[in-house]
Every structure is written in C-alpha cells, then in structure tokens.
C-alpha cells in the first residue's frame, strides 16, 4: 500500500534525535488533519445514516 508507506515515511522523517531535526510541515499537518477528518467523516456520516434510515444510533461514548 503506497499511501501507508507514505504515512510510515512521514513518521521516519520525524526523528528528533537526528542532528538539526525540524519536523516536516507535512508530518505536522497530517498529525492534525488526519484524525479530525476521520472524526468529522464518522460524526457526519452517522447523522446522515440516522436521517436516511430514521434510526437513532449510539451516542459514541467519548
């Protein structure tokens, strides 16, 4: 899976023990954007499912 390798490579670059280390902007952005995007997708997706099928799903805990 090439996108999985890409994710793994971003992590490899984020190595603070390397001399002159600075985290890549793409690594930092992915750290933030990926979880929020998946969360929004799930949250909004569940609302859409509830509206279409007229059911109330679990509130999703924390």
């Amino acid at each position: 899976m090439s996108w999985m390798d890409w994710l793994a490579r971003l992590g490899m670059d984020a190595d603070p023990s390397k001399p002159g280390f600075q985290p890549q902007t793409s690594y930092l952005v992915t750290c933030l954007v990926m979880p929020i995007a998946i969360g929004l997708l799930v949250g909004v997706g569940l609302r859409v499912i509830e509206k279409i099928f007229n059911v109330e799903l679990g509130k999703g805990g924390h």
């Binding site: 929020i36 969360g39 929004l40 799930v42 949250g43 569940l46 999703g60 924390h62």
Partner: peptide, 12 residues
C-alpha cells in the same frame, strides 16, 4: 486517535 474520536462524538 482521541482527537478523531472526540471530533466524531462532538458532532453528535
């Protein structure tokens, strides 16, 4: 993972 989980729960 908590950031993603709480985003989904907040929307709800």
């Amino acid at each position: 993972q908590m950031c993603g989980m709480s985003t989904a729960a907040t929307v709800r």
